[in-house]
């Protein structure tokens, strides 16, 4: 009788979590299965035809895939800089430098702006004859005036700079929240011991925010992999000469520009694997810390 009651209890536990599992299955599991299975088909006059691994063969043969992957990896390199700048800014704000409240708001404003708005505004500002270059010329710095988005060597780095500018606010808020919970006596003791600002930052702030740094790095890496489409679409359209393609943009172009939904799904699977790898890495880091 007791065993039956326990069994019932066990079952009821599953019953209560069932809705959550169902929703997860509908919004996550089903689309993943759909995308993976469709990556093995092609479209012939609206009919799906099984083609085995042909889409993968074609996808990996396409030079655009490697350009896009390389650009995503270049954007990954921005992540340490973004995390460092966020932490540094958060530390300065936490130290309550003069005007910190105003700076806090100003730094967070770009984060709440819609990405297409940011993209459109910057694509006008950064034109060859745009405001930025005209201002540089006006202050006798014409040598610094460049075709920021039209120069193939500069375009991706310009976009990276804009992404860092926009995303900085998120990191600052994240680190600031953690810093506010750090025991102030640590800083006071360090001050008594004669530690300078850099030493405090290095030996107290960084170790105390280690977990948040890890979180921020992983989240930012995933952002750089799967949240940069808007910037590319609005500011360069993948150009000039395909130089700013990223994987997301490649998927978009294949699916809706070229109408090849199945190849696009193949690239989706590739991104899924990369993102899964990053998430696994994060989980491992967390486990190691525990």
């Amino acid at each position: 009788m007791l065993a039956l009651g326990k069994k019932k209890n066990n079952l009821s536990r599953y019953f209560f979590v069932l809705p959550a599992y169902l929703i997860m299955a509908i919004v996550i599991i089903y689309p993943i299965i759909f995308v993976i299975s469709n990556s093995f088909f092609t479209n012939k006059m609206g009919e799906s035809v099984f083609v085995g691994i042909r889409n993968y063969r074609l996808a990996f043969k396409d030079p655009l895939f490697y350009i896009a992957l390389k650009n995503n990896l270049i954007l990954f390199l921005c992540v340490p800089l973004l995390s460092f700048l966020s932490l540094l800014t958060a530390s300065l704000l936490h130290a309550k430098i003069w005007g910190w409240r105003i700076f806090q708001s100003i730094i967070f404003i770009p984060y709440v702006l819609a990405t297409p708005v940011v993209g459109i505004v910057f694509s006008y500002l950064l034109q060859l004859n745009g405001v930025v270059n005209k201002t540089l010329e006006a202050i006798n710095l014409q040598s610094l005036a460049k075709d920021w988005l039209g120069n193939p060597q500069l375009a991706l780095f310009t976009i990276a700079g804009i992404i860092i500018w926009k995303q900085l606010g998120f990191g600052v808020v994240l680190f600031l929240a953690r810093l506010m919970s750090v025991d102030n006596s640590l800083y006071e003791a360090a001050t008594i011991d004669g530690a300078g600002a850099i030493q405090k930052f290095w030996f107290i702030t960084i170790p105390q925010t280690k977990k948040i740094i890890e979180f921020h790095v992983i989240i930012s890496l995933i952002d750089m992999l799967s949240w940069v489409f808007n910037y590319i679409f609005v500011m360069t359209g993948g150009g000039p000469g395909n130089k700013t393609y990223v994987l997301e943009f490649l998927i978009y172009k294949k699916a809706f520009g070229g109408g090849d939904m199945n190849i696009a799904m193949t690239y989706c699977v590739v991104i899924l694997f990369i993102a899964s790898f990053l998430i696994t890495l994060y989980s491992l880091l967390l486990r190691k810390d525990d």
Binding site: L64, G150, N151, P152, G238, G239, P240, G241, N242, K243, K253, G257, G258, D260
Partner: peptide, 21 residues
């Protein structure tokens, strides 16, 4: 040819201007 404009002609002509191809 299908997709030729988007994947071939457009970026290559862009390169004639951006990279002096």
């Amino acid at each position: 040819a299908p997709m030729f404009e988007a994947e071939g002609l457009a970026p290559i002509i862009q390169k004639m201007f951006s990279e002096d191809l």
